[in-house]
Amino acid sequence: MVGLSLKQANKIRVKVLGLIRNQNQIFVCEGYDSVKQQTYYRALGGSIDFGEDSLSALQREFQEEIQAELTNIKYLGCVESIFTFEARQSHEILQVYSCDFADSKFYQVKELFFTELSADTPIKALWTDISSFKSGKLKLVPEGFCDFI
């Protein structure tokens, strides 16, 4: 979700993201590009497996990453993202859904850490003010994602 492996280079990846709001905040994970020396934020989600629809992938990714069930899931749209991360060009097609946590405990956490199946480094997920992204104070990726919030 946050980083890219070498074997993923030069391929278009199809992913899904879940936009979860809590009043004036959204739930995002924090990443860092060491080449750009830049922190960025992205909604949780991940890759859609071959033969899997995007809704099922969204539910699976949240279950795998933070053991969370989702409810009130609604399709918002699609974003195409061509970007550079860690000095490598990447290309993603992202299906975007709005959703809620089924368990209210997730609305109480300030931050939580999880590790992706394909990585060893813990990833921080947290609630962040929407105004920080809209003002440009914090970087929300992919470009165009702000249109959904």
Rank of each mutant, 00 (worst) to 15 (best):
Y40F: 14
Y40L: 01
R42S: 08
R42G: 01
A43T: 15
L44K: 01
L44G: 14
G45Q: 03
G45N: 04
G46D: 10
G46Q: 11
S47T: 09
S47G: 07
S47L: 12
F50G: 01
F50P: 01
G51R: 10
G51V: 01
E52T: 07
D53R: 06
D53I: 01
D53H: 11
D53A: 06
D53Q: 09
S54Q: 13
S54N: 15
S54R: 13
L55S: 12
S56Q: 12
A57P: 13
A57D: 14
A57T: 04
L58D: 15
L58S: 14
Q59S: 09
R60A: 03
E61T: 01
E61H: 08
F62Y: 15
Q63P: 02
Q63K: 15
E64V: 03
E65P: 01
I66M: 11
Q67F: 12
E69I: 02
E69V: 04
L70N: 03
N72Q: 08
N72R: 08
K74S: 08
K74V: 06
K74H: 10
Y75N: 14
Y75T: 11
L76S: 14
L76C: 14
G77A: 04
G77H: 06
G77M: 07
C78E: 15
C78R: 14
V79I: 15
E80C: 02
S81R: 04
S81G: 02
S81I: 00
I82G: 07
F83T: 05
F83L: 05
T84G: 00
T84N: 07
T84A: 03
F85H: 14
F85D: 03
F85W: 06
F85Q: 09
E86G: 02
E86A: 09
E86M: 12
A87G: 08
R88N: 07
Q89M: 05
Q89L: 02
Q89E: 05
Q89C: 01
S90Q: 13
S90V: 00
E92S: 12
E92P: 09
E92Y: 12
I93K: 15
L94R: 07
